[in-house]
Design a protein around this nucleic acid. Sequence first.
RNA 1: CGGGGCGUAGCGCAGCCUGGUAGCGCAUCUGGUUUGGGACCAGAGGGUCGGGUGUUCGAAUCACCCCGCCCCGACCA
Length: 610
Amino acid sequence: MNLHAARLHALGSLHNYFATPKQAIQLTTTSSHTSQLNFAIMRYSRFFAPTLRDDPADAEVISHKLLLRAGFIRRVTSGVYDFLPMGLRVLRKIEGIVREEMARAGAQELLLPMVQPSELWKKSGRWEKYGNELLRFKDRHAHESCLGPTHEEVICDLVSRELRSYKQLPMNLYQIQSKFRDEVRPRFGLMRGREFIMKDAYSFHADEESLQAEYENMFATYQRIFTRLGLKFRAVEADTGSIGGSQSHEFHVLAESGEDLIAYCSHCDYAANVEKGISTRDIPSLDDAALNVIETPNVTSVEDVASFLNINTSQLLKTLIYQVTGGEFDGQTVAACVYGDDTLQEIKLARALNANAIELADDQALSSLGSSKGFVGPQGLRCKIIMDESLRDAVGMVAGANKIDSHVSGLSIHRDVPQAGFSDLREVRLNDGCAHCKEGHIKHARGIEVGQVFALGQQYTKPLEVLFQDKNGKRATATMGCYGIGVSRLVAAVIEQCNDENGMIWPLSLAPFQVVIITMGKSETAMAASEKMYQDMSAAGIEVLWDDRKERPGVKFKDAELMGLPIHVVLGDRGLEADAIEIRQRAGSKQEVSMANVIATVQAILAGTS
RNA sequence: CGGGGCGUAGCGCAGCCUGGUAGCGCAUCUGGUUUGGGACCAGAGGGUCGGGUGUUCGAAUCACCCCGCCCCGACCA
């Protein structure tokens, strides 16, 4: 039989397997372990899971290293990966849990296209606003399209065409699908890919209360999902970013390698992304004084000015000039001020200005404002000036004099910068006071963002005209929420939390296989006992991989541990003769049981009763 | 986009400075000895040295350009 014919034959068996499992089991029991292609038995010797002994040189974080080493993924190009069978199995497990919980929450699954026409994005205004992350292209008819980074436009288009009555609302539709975002800097393997798999849900409502209820429903659903995935996580208040809307929470898996910084209160349950978090700071009490110009030759940075004048950095006013793109101040420069010992949070500033993007202005822009780099102050600047709330009543401050080698002292915001606007601009600092409970102080943690929920309101439903007839027979615009989970990112996030020096450690709910049978040696008895064990376990509904390779024991143990398979059943002549079969758990423990008790023991472990 | 680094066999690397047509470990294949924690011996296969141009009798090596990848920053569901 040539290879092609063998494949057809094997596929025939596979077909039978799906049609009648029992029959397939009979088919496989008749086959010996010398058969060339047997798709029904998960034999490691035939399984596509190429493991590596060394860490690949271009992997930095542990999840990326382990995913590559264990043969779960391979890189195709920057930020784009193949999922090999092992990786796909984990991905499917995660998807399964997400699907179960979304179904429980009352959401319905559908599938939207990845290729989207520019028209919809122009309607929502994001064709211009979304930036370079949106991969745009033209088809053969020169029609502009993009790869979907998210699906608000498409879902609104669909729903707008089918929604008639308030009686159809609320509804929550979701999909699990590939997204493409042309990230500036993809990194860390599955953690920040350009193409990635996301569960995105969109809910539509007749009113705000209904949206609030669904927001809470999804919030609770996310908590259940991440709990079932065995993760240590935290829900935090979040900026709404390019998705927009009025309210948002992010769900973060706590991990050192996380790209996000989370601020949380030591006392109450307040937690927020630093992009959004608020806190209280000590306001220095300074005496009001007259404005006075002082010579500060070559002294430019906050630290240098403070030490030159022998004052605290909190007495200084830090003024930063930004070039704004989009919004009311499009194309203009804007000055932003915080206390000298604070950091300006640029996302907050962009948000306060309703800008698409902000960028620190260059020296030229400074001089055209009549100022000079290193000596910028707000007084007399001919541009929009926005200050952090904490500066509202500040007096006696030191600021740049907008003149080389000069600063001013005695600056009073009310008196000297009366036109200033105020907004929350400062980044929360470690040990700041908690603005919510007023008792605790701010602490920091690193997180991997794996989910986010948004109350969008009518931001998309208005421009895309998602309309319905309300109770009174009047036309109304639907209210919307959206809810995302980074499914492929979760694969990495779980590994970041669950690993040791030998490799991954999958929780039972996510493991690519629950059990691996490790056959020691190649004696006929060990092979036959292993194959029978494989059959019996499969029949008992256990997901099992049989390591039938002609490898030495150490190699098999190392690979099983690297791949993090939870239960290892070791079958060798020694154990078989003594009727003491070793069962090891990847998480640590091991025991020996008689052959007759192996399956019951494994089932007890799987049921969590052992 | 700014800064730094890298690109030589499937993986990890040496060779480059000082030009002479490629090497090591692991992996793979064959044979043998092994077999409860990444074995050993013998043999073999596999590389247009990221690509192009130039300098040169001769380029992995020197010069220039391009491409790709990684890290830090900027940016970002």
